[in-house]
């Protein structure tokens, strides 16, 4: 049985007066891909932001690598090996592609940063061809690749990625998901992906279904089909 790296129990997060997450509990194991699915407003982004520390939980406990982290700052959580790639504004605009990657390894030794950047280039050759290009001039798909690259260079053990496929053409979604699966296999990282695309079933080990800020189900992907997820997205 692999080790638990993230454990969330009884998590409650408020947005002002509104309770966005209600009594959320689950575990993430080493080298696992977890998909968080649910309709808009179900609390996927809030969950990721609460784990990363950009939002604070009102109740409950978040533990990472056996240590309680819900009182720690974003930076302290980052130091421990957690990294959130946000849904919006996930690159440094008006900075070169290479500089985007270098600055993402601010907590990593320069030698290891170079090694990780080479790995990113091997995954996404399109970025290697554009090292000196300003990041905001990349295409939407290339910007998503760069966002994942930023996550890789951060050298986090658990990568939280918010809606990696949003805005991408179906062909690009398939390729990006295949890249994410490859990253898990080659780096041993655990990936925690908030998604609205049913193709998540193809790469995730388990799926957490969220609706109205509550967990509706936690299931192995092999026990689910695309229709179940589509029904969840439609609120059925």
């Amino acid at each position: 049985m692999p080790d638990v790296i993230l454990e969330v129990s009884g998590l409650v997060t408020n947005y002002g007066q509104v309770t966005a997450l209600k009594n959320i509990s689950f575990k993430v194991f080493e080298n696992e891909i977890i998909g968080i699915v649910g309709p808009n407003g179900s609390g996927k982004t809030t969950l990721l932001e609460t784990i990363a520390g950009t939002l604070r939980n009102k109740e409950g406990v978040i533990s990472f690598l056996g240590r309680r982290i819900d009182g720690l700052s974003v930076r302290e959580r980052r130091r421990m090996g957690l990294m959130l790639v946000p849904q919006e504004r996930y690159i440094f605009p008006m900075m070169q592609v290479r500089k985007n990657l270098e600055v993402s390894g601010v907590l990593v030794s320069p030698k290891r940063v170079n090694h990780l950047i080479d790995y990113v280039y091997s995954l996404f050759p399109a970025l290697k061809e554009r090292v000196t290009q300003s990041a905001h001039t990349l295409s939407g798909g290339q910007q998503k690749m760069l966002a994942v690259g930023i996550g890789i260079v951060s050298d986090a053990r658990l990568l939280l990625i918010d809606e990696p496929s949003i805005g991408l053409a179906p062909k690009l979604v398939t390729r990006l998901f295949s890249n994410l699966s490859q990253i898990r296999q080659e780096t041993g990282k655990a990936l925690f992906l908030a998604e609205q695309n049913v193709k998540i079933l193809r790469i995730a080990d388990r799926i957490i279904g969220l609706e109205g800020g509550e967990i509706k189900f936690v299931e192995k992907s092999s026990n689910l089909d695309e229709k179940t997820l589509q029904d969840l997205y439609m609120g059925q």
Binding site: V74, R78, M83, P93, M94, M95, K99, V103, V106, S154
Partner: peptide, 25 residues
Amino acid sequence: IHTRPGQSWQATSRNLKLAKLVGVN
């Protein structure tokens, strides 16, 4: 362009939230 603190500085002005997320102080 050439130093880590300088890149952190640039990153902070370009995208504050992401700079925090990658670990820039």
